[in-house]
Amino acid sequence: MSHFRVFFKKEMVEHIRTYKLLIMLVVFFIFGIMNPLTAKLTPELLEKFMPEGVLISLPEPSSIDSWAQFYKNITQMGLIVTVLVFSSVLSSELSKGTLINLLTKGLSRTAVIMGKFAAMLTIWTASLATAFVTTWGYTVFLFSDDYSANLFSSVFCLWLFGVFILAVLLCSSTLAASSYGALLLTGAAAVCLAILNIFPKAWKYNPLSLAGKNMELVTNSIMFSSLSYAIGVTVAAAIALLAAAVLIFKRKQL
């Protein structure tokens, strides 16, 4: 346990010194601001750039549009940036050989994997919270309506999906030799989940639903409980991936 704590601290210091924490927080803050702004300004911009005489009737933007932007941006760009930032989480240390010293001095390999995961989890949680609070604040500021429901449960689903993706990334990092290999494996896993979604019945169990059904939750067209199987599968898969990462890393030749 003390190994874990020490290694977790070392990971956080490293993320701060390599600007990873800064990038994540600033990027998610910018996303957070952009969402309500895009929702508010898109109709105005369209009107301005339409040629003379063309009339289009656009519905008045509402808080729903702002949250639609949030879930579009975070599930695409936000997750991509997260995965890119953390793609070298294991490979850079393996290629530099900085871990070998610590491991021969008795640092447990389980602590390495768990410490790395905990540090990624902390940063992902902080970044998502930043984006969420920013979007929330400005949405309330710009759109004074109460059309949006289930804000917390829908963002919880997205958070859990992010945790799952980070577990996939860490497990891929133990398998692949380079950061690009880890990225490729993570991308392949996401593609597999997307292919699974072709089957209409799969969405109930597919972790991808947690990043795709958020707007249905916000507009109250599905119940949170209908995602409970997907949540169960995601939690189980994340734990299994972590266990696999530990097992693979224990057998890996450094």
Binding site: F29, I30, I33, P36, F141, L142
Partner: peptide, 11 residues
């Protein structure tokens, strides 16, 4: 919209 644009520019 300065309350929104200003923090965006600062970031």
């Amino acid at each position: 919209y300065w309350p929104i644009l200003l923090p965006l520019i600062i970031a």
